[in-house]
Amino acid sequence: MKQNLYNYILGIADNSLILGQRMGELCGHGPSLETDIACTNISLDLFGQVRSYFQYASKLAGDGRTEDDIAMLRQEREYVNVLLVEQPNTDFAYTIARHFLFDVYHLLFLTELEKSKDLTLSAIAKKCIKEVRYHERFTSDWMKRLGDGTAESKAKIQEAINDLWTYTDELFHQTKADKAMVAEGIGVDVTKLKDAYYEKVNEVLTEATLETPESKYFQKGGKKGIHTEHMGYLLAELQYMQRAYPNMEW
């Protein structure tokens, strides 16, 4: 099996899976009907993308593991999503800030992945970009509405950005699979996305009349399977059905 490629796909897909799960938690709990529907639709997009990635991974594995097995039946240490996407929906500001900080990265990443020599990954990226563009519009729009809104909304969104900032740097760390795939012209060199990322984030924050945090202290670990304390609870909910009723399908 092409182990590096398999690991590389998991690195991409786990971000969408875990973020999709977080957004899905808002189903029936969004602050208004419209935002509730938006968050669940975004979640649905992300799960759809995950299916494409895991179907491909399942083909590569070739050992009978299905997309469901890969998505639902790993242990916590085997999930390699970044810490950012597993952070909880503390309030609506955290939900928007977390998703915004990921969207900016996601769009830059997919734009590069579209150029991959791997035709399947390139096709998935091309499909995903169209959707993620809408997600980024939605979250950027809300960043501005909250930042440039009332004194309370501004304070809350600023606090969320400040708290989540510490998880942004990990987006640009390279894993072993990353390096191997970049060398083969399949993967994206994430280190090169960093400048454009902070520039774009800064642009939106400025327009939202918010401060760009200056902290240079960053958390990392997700890409190596070392997660924050929130991950276990998230997985318990994500995996419940599959563990209670083994072999269920999407």
Binding site: E34, I37, F138, D141
Partner: peptide
């Protein structure tokens, strides 16, 4: 525009 996401992901309200 009421919402960028409508009854399904492909529609706005």
């Amino acid at each position: 525009l009421v919402s960028q996401f409508g009854s399904t992901a492909c529609k706005a309200q």
